[in-house]
């Protein structure tokens, strides 16, 4: 046995308990989503079931207003991602390229906002949205998601911007470009991958957010997916678990795939960024 093979076996052995615990609920999710309703509560509980009931997904879609919640989630996540990126690009560019007084202060301010969790402020935010007459409007979520994500997007963009050599812009100025041309023709094309990665992470953050959506959205028609699914579970005597699990499959699997594909960028970002 080669040393590497030996090491691999050892590592997998060590990692396997964790892997099992991580994967177990996903197994539960799939087998529940696909089993017939009357096999949910059998005693003793068992993993096996009689048939793959794909209709569960269709039923769930119709009964739980999944489509509406999906659209709400898409609207909130897309809008807040776009606004967050648009507001963050100039700020990240300024932090990455200019020396100015107050820069350190601003970065610390951003760090602080990143630390402030929505839950501590949720009451104040709720009252703010009442004043602004935005309670029950999806736009209240858009605004707050942008604000709470901005520290992350600015920090992430800045750490990528720092890897784009300043000399490229300097060379373009000397070549006769104005600051604006240089930005459009040289800098932004090179920054596209960073912006895409950052946008996707922001999207996922907004997609997954729970506390604010639970608080600021009161009417069922405006629920986002996490709240929608939570409302199927909480405070009900009879929980349609096969529907809940079917909804969870649809809400998590696409996001999980995209995230798994992108996680190495996050690790790279961590290595480059403030946590250097």
């Amino acid at each position: 046995m080669t040393p590497k093979l030996k090491k691999s076996l050892l590592y997998w052995l060590l990692l396997s308990p964790l892997c099992v615990v991580i994967l177990l609920p996903f197994g539960v999710m799939f087998v529940t989503a696909l089993r017939p309703r009357d096999e949910l509560f059998v005693y003793p509980p068992t993993w096996t079931f009689s048939e793959f009931r794909w209709e569960n997904f269709v039923e769930m879609w119709v009964k739980t207003n999944f489509g509406g919640a999906l659209l709400n989630s898409l609207y909130v996540s897309l809008t807040s991602t776009i606004i967050a990126i648009v507001l963050s690009i100039p700020a990240a560019y300024a932090l990455s390229r200019y020396r100015f007084s107050g820069k350190g202060l601003y970065r610390n301010f951003l760090l602080m906002t990143q630390m402030m969790s929505p839950i501590v402020l949720v009451l104040g935010l709720f009252r703010l949205m009442v004043h602004l007459n935005l309670v029950n409007s999806l736009n209240s979520l858009v605004v707050t998601y942008v604000a709470f994500n901005m520290a992350f997007t600015i920090w992430m963009l800045q750490s990528y911007f720092n890897t784009i050599p300043r000399e490229l812009e300097e060379a373009s100025w000397i070549d006769g470009a104005t600051s604006f041309t240089s930005l459009v023709k040289i800098f932004l094309p090179l920054a596209v991958p960073a912006m895409v990665v950052t946008a996707i992470f922001t999207f996922i953050n907004s997609w997954n957010e729970f506390v604010l959506a639970l608080t600021l959205i009161r009417s069922q028609n405006d629920y986002t997916l996490p709240v929608q699914i939570f409302s199927q579970v909480a405070g009900r005597y009879q929980v349609e678990w096969h529907h809940v699990m079917a909804a969870t499959v649809l809400a998590t699997v696409p996001v999980a795939i995209v995230f798994s594909w992108l996680q190495r960028y996050l690790i790279r970002g961590m290595a480059l960024g403030a946590v250097k």
């Binding site: 997998w12 990692l15 699914i229 579970v233 996680q263």
Partner: peptide
């Protein structure tokens, strides 16, 4: 292994808790 270990991060806390 990396993908598996990172998986809980991809899923919202809400969904994980529901599961």
């Amino acid at each position: 292994a990396r993908v598996i270990v990172m998986l809980p991060w991809a899923i919202s806390l809400t969904m994980t808790a529901v599961l």
